[in-house]
């Protein structure tokens, strides 16, 4: 018997049944088709303005910095923030249609390269698929407009997040993923990111910037 058959057999023998059939199978299939929600924390059960505020509050608690601007101010906000923090005015930026909407040419000193991150990049600029108010978590979906390396390699990650992409909890994110990619389908990688990279591996004391970004700046854009 194949290793696969052997393992499935061992499981079924222990469960004292053959392959799942009848009502038990129907129930499991129904659960896949219509997922069961667990208790959803009330914390993020707010109107949208409240959710945006809650997201910003948690993001700052998670050691990210947050700026709230209009769409016309995004490039200037990023250039100014980089300058104030003595960071290079040079970044690898996600090649997404979403980021094309902003007038980057207005920032003459900001040097942008569109594409994946390479090891020497100091700063990455990306959008976000969604964000979770409950915990201040960003949700990044990989694809041609959002290479995964941008989320990880550079020491500084600047995220341009549209207010309308902020939701209460995971449940709404799952629904949005299903709407965008189809039921049961996903992009290769979904990174949910809650603040900069960190480690507590030396004496349980948190240090930022273990492997991923040390710094994270979230630019929340009003519609």
């Amino acid at each position: 018997m194949s290793a696969r058959g052997q393992m499935l057999d061992a499981i079924r023998r222990s469960l004292k049944r053959g392959p799942l059939t009848g009502p038990a199978r129907d129930a499991a299939e129904a659960r896949l088709a219509a997922p069961v929600r667990g208790p959803v924390p009330k914390r993020a059960d707010l109107d949208h303005a409240g959710q945006v505020a809650l997201f910003c509050q948690w993001a700052e608690t998670n050691n990210a910095s947050v700026a709230r601007v209009g769409a016309g101010e995004v490039p200037a906000e990023i250039a100014g923030w980089l300058k104030r923090n003595n960071l290079p005015a040079r970044a690898a930026m996600a090649p997404s249609a979403e980021l094309d909407r902003y007038d980057w040419a207005s920032q003459k000193l900001l040097e942008l390269r569109r594409g994946i991150a390479v090891p020497d990049d100091q700063v990455a600029i990306t959008g976000a698929f969604a964000a979770i108010a409950e915990t201040g978590t960003l949700v990044m979906a990989s694809g041609p407009g959002h290479p995964v390396t941008l989320n990880l390699l550079p020491e500084t990650h600047v995220v341009v997040l549209r207010e309308q992409d902020i939701v209460g909890g995971y449940e709404t994110v799952w629904e949005r993923l299903r709407a965008a990619y189809g039921r049961g389908a996903m992009p290769r990688t979904v990174n949910t990111i809650t603040g900069p990279s960190r480690t507590g591996d030396i004496e349980q004391t948190i240090e930022l910037g273990a492997h991923g970004p040390r710094r994270m700046h979230i630019v929340v854009v009003r519609p």
């Binding site: 041609p144 990688t189 979904v190």
Partner: peptide, 21 residues
């Protein structure tokens, strides 16, 4: 923690139009 810094969902190998992975 309210949430760990990274929770990642990987599904299959990179897609044809992905730029990394």
């Amino acid at each position: 923690q309210e949430s760990s810094a990274y929770t990642t969902l990987n599904t299959g190998p990179r897609r044809a139009d992905d730029l990394d992975g």
